[in-house]
Nucleic acid binder design. Structure first.
Lengths: 254, 254
DNA sequence: CCAATAGTGTCTATCAGACAATATTAC
DNA sequence: GTAATATTGTCTGATAGACACTATTGG
């Protein structure tokens, strides 16, 4: 036993952002090409260290969202998990708090600001391909995507992917893209309508594109879907890169 | 703009444990009466700082589980969330990673080891009463309990509350205690049996207590319950202290 | 007219909850 | 026998998914 007063070790605290959006009916994540070591040339999640010792973590997440991604505001931002494995950052002991952000569809490729090399990448490509990713960011992205998939079932998160107003088929595209399945439009229509409070009509306006104009809706007050939107069924074409066991655990049966 | 090289701020990293178990058919959490400042005399979650700068967080959680709670092993230990609000610890900027642990029923009140003042407290009392809790630990406990409630629906977590083998009615008591509801034993019996792989028979043994002896079961390979155990129905007495929005977000309807 | 999408109605297998009935122990 | 719990069976209302059908636009 040492008699010297023991000092607890200190660590560096970082924030990383998994920002998801829909582009061309596919799920995308915002990545930044690193211009400095370590991992220069690799892609990484937007993020960084606390700006000062008193900065709140959530505030830091919003700051990075603005600085690195050029997004002043997003409809959804929540803590995802923490990554603190000792060897994950060659610069030292860095604990990273990951946040999941959802951006509405089709925000333009981001420009100006600090977000120079920022670009949207299809999640499918990022998770499956050999695209070089810095640190443990592939794992963080996988966790973020799985979190979004689960939350789509039980919460009104899907509306965060949509613009202020949206049609039911646009909402369906969110589910189809994030889950990687095809859903029956008629049953989907009935289901979201029966979850009263999930979406509410947004004015008598309609919109046109190809067929009969659709009613417009906006998010309602309902945040928790009960019963949930069942993700089980009609997988028309098994999408590649769907290996998303979020826990180090066993199989799914039924 | 300063030309001096900027140094990111460093923080102290702590681990806190929400250890839940069942005692007398009620949900309990393990608390420790603090003997030192700050918050001397208040109850707090077992936990502490990293022992050294290279310690893995999960390893630290297991170390604290052993040192402070006297539990060498638990059937379930997973990260819960992170708490890093600047003012949460008067000693400085402390980031705490909270873990949720589930202990099997009736581990004796813990003794020896470091776990001197450790004791099991009913969660209901802890969350509702004026029991003095250190730091933001009441909030952490509430988040942990809510996490357990949700996980009981969709995963095989309930078996972690039970001994190596258990009867179906013991498993039912877990659900009833954690959710604060009464369930129909006959429908519960059918439901867990139909979720094949959730629990499997453990030998032809039986056990006795009051009525007809019950079959013994042990946890099966199934980890994800689909369909989930619906928590909706027969709430006998609404359990207090259920305000657990871990993010600054909206309400629950339906 | 046709193509395409929006929206409604209907059928059926399945399931959750209510609850009767039977089985097996202790007393 | 009674009391108590375990286990099985049955009924009924609700629901998810399949899918026919109508509505409304553009061309």
């Amino acid at each position: 036993m040492s008699v010297e007063p023991w000092e607890p070790p200190s660590v560096l605290l970082a924030v990383d952002l998994v920002i998801l959006t829909l582009r061309s009916a596919r799920l995308h994540v915002l990545l930044i090409e690193r211009g400095v070591e370590p991992y220069r040339g690799s892609f990484a999640l937007p993020g960084g260290f606390l700006s000062h010792g008193d900065e709140d973590i959530f505030v830091a997440a919003r700051r990075e969202l603005s600085e690195e991604a050029g997004l002043a505001d997003v409809p959804h931002l929540e803590m995802l998990s923490v990554y603190g494995e000792p060897g994950r950052d060659p610069r030292g002991r860095v604990i990273s708090v990951a946040y999941l952000a959802i951006a509405p569809r089709l925000p333009e490729p981001v420009a100006g600001t600090d977000a120079a090399g920022a670009c949207w990448k299809p999640v499918e490509d990022v998770l499956s391909s050999g695209l070089k990713l810095a640190f443990d960011h592939r794992r963080i992205i996988a966790d973020g995507v799985e979190c979004a998939r689960v939350k789509l079932e039980h919460s009104a998160l899907a509306t965060a992917f949509c613009a202020d107003t949206f049609t039911i088929s646009e909402l369906q595209q969110v589910y189809e893209a994030v889950w990687g399945v095809r859903l029956d439009p008629r049953n989907f229509y009935r289901k979201v309508q029966n979850a009263r409070g999930f979406i509410v009509p947004a004015g008598p306006m309609r919109r046109t594109e190809n067929g009969r104009p659709a009613r417009l809706f906006k998010p309602g007050p309902l945040q928790v879907l009960y019963p949930p939107m069942a993700r089980s069924a009609q997988s028309v074409s098994a999408p590649p890169g769907d290996s998303t066991a979020q826990n180090p655990e066993g199989g799914v049966l039924s």
